[in-house]
Design a protein around this nucleic acid. Sequence first.
DNA 1: ACTACGAGACTTTTT
DNA 2: GTCTCGTAGT
Length: 761
Amino acid sequence: MSNLLSNLNPEQLKAVTLPRVSALVLAGAGSGKTRVLTTRIAHLIQSGQASPAGILAVTFTNKAAREMTTRLESMLPINTRGMWIGTFHGLCNRLLRAHYRDAILPQTFQILDSADQQSAVKRVLKSMNVDDEKFKPREMCWFINGAKEQGLRYKDVEAHDEFTRRQVEIFQAYDEQCQKEGVVDFAELLLRCYELLSRNAPLLEHYRDRFKFILVDEFQDTNKLQYRWIRLLAGTTGAVFGVGDDDQSVYGFRGAEVGNMRDFQHDFHVQEVIKLEQNYRSHGSILDAANAVIKHNQARLGKNLWTDAGKGEPLRIFAAANDNEEAQFIVDEVKSLHREGMRLNDIALLYRSNAQSRVLEHSLFRAGLSYRVYGGLRFFERQEVKHALAYMRLAANPDDDGAFTRVVNFPPRGIGARSIEQLQDAANMNRCSLMQAAKSFMPPGRSAAALGTFISLVDGLKASAETLTLQELVEEIVERSTLKSHYQSEREGAERIENLAELTNAAALFNEEYEGEDKPLIGFLTHASLESGEHEAGQGDDALQLMTVHAAKGLEFDAVFLSGLEEGLFPHDNSMNQLDGIEEERRLMYVAITRARKRLYLSYAGSRMLHGQPRYGVVSRFVDEIPSELCKWIVLPERVATFNSYSRGSQGDFFAKQDWGGRSAGGYHPQGTGYAPKTESETVFSAKDTISKQDMQRARFETSRPDAHPFGIGQNVMHAKFGEGVVINFEGSGLDARIHVKFRDVGTKILAMQYAKLTAA
DNA sequence: ACTACGAGACTTTTT
DNA sequence: GTCTCGTAGT
């Protein structure tokens, strides 16, 4: 036991060994939050205070749940398989499956992901003859989920105007359609579970009695319904151990309520709040910057991170003339870090919004740096995979109209919109599913044969599902549905076929892992919707990591590049008019900064292409909130003179970029503590080398002038898309300067100087 | 019934 | 710039 508790700091130890009371742990970034959670569970079990079955631990992501489980297994010689550690949705699903009758759900109920939900809403709108321009499916989903996440059914929603009343009607029709089809959306999973427990006293008693210890991760991210769910399960005698960080609450836009942390203290009579403030991740300057920024927020529970790791290096700030230059700077720095021995895997490139990744990717690609972008389409969300899954869903439940509409004519088999409409009418008329309508009320016509083919296909699959293994079933679906041959004839179908093969793989893997599951098909489909697939392909190879700041939450890297630090981008324009908007953006900035272990770069661009339009930016207020003594500004060598002409007297000099980076002085030590600036670089980073913000701004404007460009009339140039050409004229000045180039293959083009990615040829 | 082209949108996101 | 959606044409 002492083994388990050794190496914990006093606060961590206190949290881990707390008796059976409700408690709140304010865990700052990098303060060992997951460690505390898992060690507490291990300690409770080892000391005999709890049995593995008596613990309920809830997280937000599958990844977090998995990490907790793995760590726990390494601490204790127990099998975590039967333990209740999982996401809110995963645990609710488990409860609903166990008590499907009480929850009034079919045993085979399916879970809709966001895309499925949207198409379900579309079908509702159609059947109600509602204009989907006025009631956009996306917004309807938002409305429905928003209500459910507050614990509200359609009849609980207050409607004071005609529009909302109509929305409520659609809400009702949608829920009825879902019930009829035996499907539940994500929010429904939680609400249904909440209602199941609150309406069934013996059942609730049973679980209250069982879960003596409830642990909640990322408490600041809980929404109203999740909070009520926890309260319900805990009752008046339960003990809830909440861990969270109000400064890292960045999901307000999807219903998370930081206020739940305050309410928790009150509602659960929390006697003491334990603060974990010692940070084991970042060097001092990085933490100081994070603390300085977050101090500007008013509504905080209050917390200050510290470290004994030493100051480390200053933050590096780069002001680029435009987005391409910013990207180029990052490429050069990454290359240099890589040369020094830092693995690309340990370097992250963060941005506020996904749209920003393109320019960066472009430069990385040209430079031949391998990188991986997080947060695109996940495996189970891919079109071809969803199609195959729809066939599986029909095999499990032929009355699943969503799955039916998805694949009734995919691959195309001659069933057009007209026929589907007729089917829909027949189904409405007879109050049955589309499949039943197709079987019993098939309208006579040309498409009858095609429909017959489809019906027998699904019937065949249904029969196969009884006898075949999961893997064989997937293989059969891919073949017999002609998905495979369809994609084979498609130009870019190779990748899709690969993904279908990967689905076969996933099915085999699932079977292996959940051997003996009585309903493997249902289990697999649930797995597919609940775990949209962190099937991280190519995780093994060394690649730079690109992601949004949101996606980076919970991760850490040796070096972090935070790009696009401009007003309007970060903080984002759309956040400004939201309540608490700026504070949430600032928390996001805090999250971004605290991702870095040893080195942090901040960059912004004077102009960048956004939505196909140039947009001129001003440095983000968040950069200004970082004390300048923690920062060093980096300037391109050819501009040092320009910048220095603005700084007078004691202001000192800027650094030419090549004097930076600790190439010879200091450097990266892969197995050591990382960057250890030596004397030489300490000199380089001395305090006199700063410049005022105003000079910075003015200098940047100067350097953006067109006469700084390296081209002359008659010069041969190269363009990524247009190929070779010759410069024939210039036009305009300042940021609007344009260059006329006569290309060999595509004729004369007039390009914006700033964006034309021209190179001398 | 299917394909091709043009208009309009576009913060962040897990389940 | 790029993706999705809707309409018009084959």
